[in-house]
Design a protein around this nucleic acid. Structure first.
Lengths: 192, 192
DNA sequence: TGTACATCAGTGAACGCGCGTTCACTGATGTAC
DNA sequence: TGTACATCAGTGAACGCGCGTTCACTGATGTAC
């Protein structure tokens, strides 16, 4: 029973391909070729290309659930620059570690409605998280629930878009400097 | 000579379609149907779908060149909250006015290398602009050229991604509130 | 103003390419006795 | 340990769909005399 192995090899193949091509540009034959399999094998494991990406997204979300909990713990806050730096660094590490699937989901969410809601769900968590902390610390950006939510969205957008640009589009920069820049902007922006 | 008219009608048709579907989902026949023309007409004016979007991108860039100059003038600065609000508001207005083509370029830049550099060019201007002002006002985020550039990128990313989310993905929100949120975060983030 | 001819925008049925998807087959692995 | 049979992962040539692209034709507009 090699079944699980081949399935994993196909997933790995797409992850590798996503560092070279956009999701839209990747063909089924590219995936099977990269995995060293015949085309037909693909359909033993996935209905189509989107099913594979959906599967990767599922793995990612599962990883997030356990990872976030253990890494940040429960009773954390966001009231100092160090807290914020810690958050930004954790986000950055997650983004880097799961770069291919995040990139794939992001790209696919721009093209087809199918992945819009998966991407929305990922962002929703982020926004939720920041919003909670903004309200908690009574930041000037969060006078009320609504304004806090909007500030949370703005920060989530900055983190995601900046990370995408630095890690996926023009890789090779200094991570620490990026983290410092984000930390500085967010800390001053929130704490005043 | 209806030539120019039909060309414009095809462009308008894509702009309208882009408010309903993603660029990837739009077929040539959708465009001609929306414009009330036959398929064949399309090819009298454009080599393919990408050529049409490239043409829209050209119009947009030309509009930007004149617009930015007249709206902001030359001797402007970024040293007060009001200056920043003014900038954010101008950006927001431009984004709203040219929403379809910006959305199209953004989506296409995620999928094909062809539009990567067009989108890069648009962002480069933004980053350049913010970087210059960050250095000018001696903001804490801009100790040196490099850190200022990174902060400029982060702010550009936030503006673009936030505007995309609010205007294209879940439209109908209050513009003024969005502008205030961004202004507040940027002003505190930069001015300290 | 009228006629004959030229040009060119517009048409849409037909064509054909690229790629996803299928399926009859192979051979490896597992199971029964 | 060996033989016969069953199951199932893996194969890739062949098929066919969807859509972009073409092209011979139509009819409107412009031009010459």
């Amino acid at each position: 029973m090699k079944s699980k192995r081949t399935e994993a090899e196909l997933k790995d193949a797409v992850r590798r391909l996503l560092t070279r091509k956009s999701y839209a540009e990747i063909k089924i034959t590219d995936i099977t070729a990269e995995a060293g399999k015949a085309v037909g094998s693909f359909y033993r494991y996935f209905e189509d290309k989107d099913a594979l990406l959906t599967s990767l997204a599922g793995d990612f979300q599962a990883a997030l659930r356990s990872h976030v909990v253990e890494q940040l713990g429960h009773g954390h806050t966001m009231s100092t620059v160090d807290d914020i730096r810690h958050h930004v660094r954790a986000y950055w590490a997650t983004y880097r570690e799961h770069l291919p699937e995040i990139v794939g989901i992001f790209q696919a969410s721009m093209a087809s409605g199918t992945f819009r809601h998966i991407h929305d769900e990922l962002r929703r968590r982020q926004v939720e998280h920041w919003t909670r902390h903004i309200l908690e610390i009574g930041a000037p950006a969060g006078k009320n629930e609504e304004s806090a939510r909007m500030a949370g969205l703005a920060i989530s957008c900055m983190l995601e878009s900046f990370a995408y640009h630095r890690l996926a589009e023009s890789p090779g920069g200094d991570d620490e400097e990026a983290i410092e820049t984000l930390t500085g902007l967010i800390a001053r922006g929130l704490l005043g």
